[in-house]
Design a protein around this nucleic acid. Sequence first.
DNA 1: GTACCTGTAATAATAATATTACATATCAAG
DNA 2: CTTGATATGTAATATTATTATTACAGGTAC
Lengths: 168, 168
Amino acid sequence: MKQKTPPNDPACPAMVQHDHAACVRRVMEDTELLVADAGVRLTPVRRRTLEILLESPAAVGAYDLLKRLDAEGLGAQPTIAYRALDFLVEHGLAHRIERLNAFVACMHPREGHKPAFMICRACRAVAETTAEATDAALQRGAAAIGFQIERVVVEVEGLCPKCQDVTA
Amino acid sequence: MKQKTPPNDPACPAMVQHDHAACVRRVMEDTELLVADAGVRLTPVRRRTLEILLESPAAVGAYDLLKRLDAEGLGAQPTIAYRALDFLVEHGLAHRIERLNAFVACMHPREGHKPAFMICRACRAVAETTAEATDAALQRGAAAIGFQIERVVVEVEGLCPKCQDVTA
DNA sequence: GTACCTGTAATAATAATATTACATATCAAG
DNA sequence: CTTGATATGTAATATTATTATTACAGGTAC
């Protein structure tokens, strides 16, 4: 099976002017192939959830998502939203932003990357970047005290270019 | 004014056997001096909150804290706890662990450090370490898209030495 | 075929976490 | 001793997350 995006690409240059609709199309296509490979189902709720995340420049809260799903007749209970989100996260199609208790679509699934997130505190926009470099240092620190790493969260809060201008 | 702990010391070797009561005393003394310098007030609620955080090896949730404050007649509403916690975090005396929606005392305040946290998913114990090395890479990434960094969160989830043994 | 197991989805109830608003009290500077 | 900033008290509400339960569809072993 063929992969549409090369690894370590600024696949979707978030916070920078670009044709985002094209990014959305590309990720959705990649995703279709990916779930087919994995033998799991991209059900209507799951597909729509991913689309909603993809179309939002900002992280989406579980209940914001639920409101939208409800409006479209796809379900009105928290669990609907959480399960869809859990599924997407579990399969690397979305990321949970701990800082916001909210979610974003993964703009380059399938890569098994170590993502880091730049979160604008003004508009909530989130840019996904890679943080391979930060990892080694953490591994050393963990080894020193015998801590066994399972998951690393790197989240940066600040101001995106747009909000710097507005605030200034 | 004199500082009691040299920078970049394993001031409190969390997750490792040591005399923690001594750590608590040291940090409280440091804190007294620090707030005096800053011209802010370490009120009873704030002081007691810090002590509670210091004495707990695990991160403390806002409502766990509130229960304890309430038992001691220091306040019964969520706001009380959140206000005290906000104060401590704002002044670098405590850290918020995003992963847990909970808080830990800073074991070496005043250093303007870049903390990283090792969080045991089994016992919730939290070890504070420094992650200076991870920072540079993030700064470069941010510069590339014009993002202005204000705060960096690095949280590692896994198993502490003790819980590895128990689980194994 | 029917009894059993599994995966998926939907519903309901509850628990945990967090914010807002406003009134009152205290402190510290002028 | 009064004013403005800081801190506290209280209430109500909002948001996020977990747990338990029910339903149904598809496969498979006897």
